[in-house]
Design a protein around this nucleic acid. Structure first.
Length: 412
RNA sequence: CGGGGCGUCGUAUACCGGUAGUACGCUUGCUUUGGGAGCAAGAUGACGGAGUUCGAUUCUCCGCGCCCCGACCA
């Protein structure tokens, strides 16, 4: 992509109406556009990051046997009334048509997925099954906050699994947990797993995936010596106590953001919808159900918060909008431009995704923009490049610079 | 939803009871080109409503919007 063609531009100043670092940087860099409190549009650069995160999530869900579907986000009110959520879930957006028919906007999809599963899984032979989707969710938050981290419309992956036994469910639950941890680590984050309450709809325990950041809304207690971590909501210990798991470490308190969760739903929804399957003896049985959520847009917000510095964003390679940011500094010099053009072409042919800053603006502006946008590798074509056949390769995260020949660069 | 703060060109800000200035961005021209350039000439602005007043962008009230703290977070 030639940057001269990119329709977004960077901004020098952070917006006055955002204090969250993720929103300030993402808006300044032109990744997102705010529509209203808690609702953001994703622009070309932001959408590329979002899609890469989605692809990682998709790969990991597929790897545990999940099958992707796309459910409606405009829902009939009936299933919501059937489970009691119409009355009990206060974040549910309810809307009314001209003819006063009632609808809900999807804030989670148990009400939709359970009847779908029911239709296609009448037998124990059809189970277990795990289905998921990646899409928009709507929640009537009283207070949207923290930029893209807690919105009224947001991107989420939600998976639902159905099993014939608690044991089978728990096996899958563990695999899903491992898959989640792979998602976070591939996104450049370290996530901790906590036990937390299941909320009002489930008496069972759930697990939350937490990334330590001051922008988070949760307080966690974690052990420095082992993997133990608990939400302070449910922890029996307090800061400074010794770890209940390993006994060696001391518990530390930190602010964290919940970037995913998994719930044991038991048989609640199967009961609500009368979803039973026939077992091997021909008897009706209720399946055990689990649900697994990852807040995709929140995850992107957390990455922006934690992997950034005073100059701007700094994306890990796996989710960066482009692999290489190619800068040509002397656009009035035909030889430099030709050199950079050929690099752009050759790198692209090698499969690298390149953002090519071909604009005729000053070098300082290009550097500042590159720092802000945060593409991991920067290739600089300057005055000497043509003569020496050499470019500078700068790593955004470390600032480390090396001079490499065109050949070396293309081989990399 | 309770509490607090804020609302001025596209963005960030300043001033003011007598209709608004600066910087960046934008348009045109020239110069410049390794860390957000310079000169010149332009275009663009007071959230909405009511009230007080000779006169309101400024003061008061009511809406609306945005941010923060809390509550909430199926």
């Amino acid at each position: 992509m030639r940057q001269s063609q990119l329709f977004t531009k960077t901004r020098r100043e952070a917006p006055a109406d955002e204090t969250a670092k993720n929103a300030q940087l993402l808006i300044r860099a032109g990744f997102v556009h705010k529509e209203m409190a808690g609702v953001y549009s994703f622009l070309p650069l932001g959408l590329r990051v979002l899609k890469k995160i989605e692809d990682i999530v998709r790969e990991e869900m597929d790897a545990v046997g999940g099958q992707e579907i796309r459910m409606a986000t405009l829902h009939p009110s009936e299933p919501w009334k059937q489970t009691g959520a119409w009355e009990n879930v206060d974040v549910l957006f309810k809307i009314q048509s001209r003819t006063e028919k009632e609808y809900a906007l999807g804030q989670s999809e148990e009400e939709i997925v359970t009847p779908i599963a029911q239709e296609y899984a009448p037998s124990y032979k059809d189970l277990p099954v795990a289905i998921y989707q990646i899409g928009q969710k709507y929640r009537d938050e009283l207070r949207a906050k923290s930029g893209i981290m807690r919105g009224r419309e947001f991107g989420m992956k939600d998976m639902y699994s159905f099993h014939t036994s608690q044991e089978d469910f728990e096996k899958f639950y563990e695999r899903a947990k491992e898959a989640y941890l792979r998602v976070y680590s591939r996104c450049g984050l370290v996530a901790k797993v906590t036990e937390a309450s299941g909320g009002s709809f489930s008496e069972k325990l759930s697990y939350e995936f937490m990334v330590i950041t001051d922008a988070g809304e949760d307080d966690i207690l974690y052990c420095e010596a082992c993997t133990h971590c608990a939400n302070v909501e449910v922890a029996k210990e307090k800061e400074g106590d010794s770890c209940p798991k390993c006994g060696k470490g001391t518990l530390k308190k930190a602010k964290a953001s919940e970037v995913g969760n998994v719930f044991d739903l038991g048989q609640k929804y199967a009961r609500d919808f009368g979803f039973s399957y026939k077992d091997a003896e021909g008897k009706d049985q209720l399946p055990i159900m689990g649900c697994y959520g990852i807040g995709i847009t929140r995850l992107m917000g957390v990455i922006a918060e934690t992997l950034s510095d005073e100059k701007g964003l700094s994306w890990p390679e796996a989710i960066a909008p482009y692999d290489v940011h190619l800068l040509v500094l002397t656009t009035d010099d035909a030889a430099s431009v030709a050199f950079a053009d050929s690099l752009y072409e050759d790198l692209s042919k090698k499969g690298k995704k390149v953002l090519y800053d071909d604009r005729s603006v000053r070098a300082g502006e290009k550097f500042a923009d590159a720092d802000l946008i945060g593409i991991p590798a920067r290739v600089i074509v300057g005055k000497d490049s043509v003569a020496k056949g050499e470019v500078e390769l700068v790593h955004r995260a470390t600032g480390q610079m090396e001079k490499v020949t065109k050949e070396t660069l293309l081989a990399w």
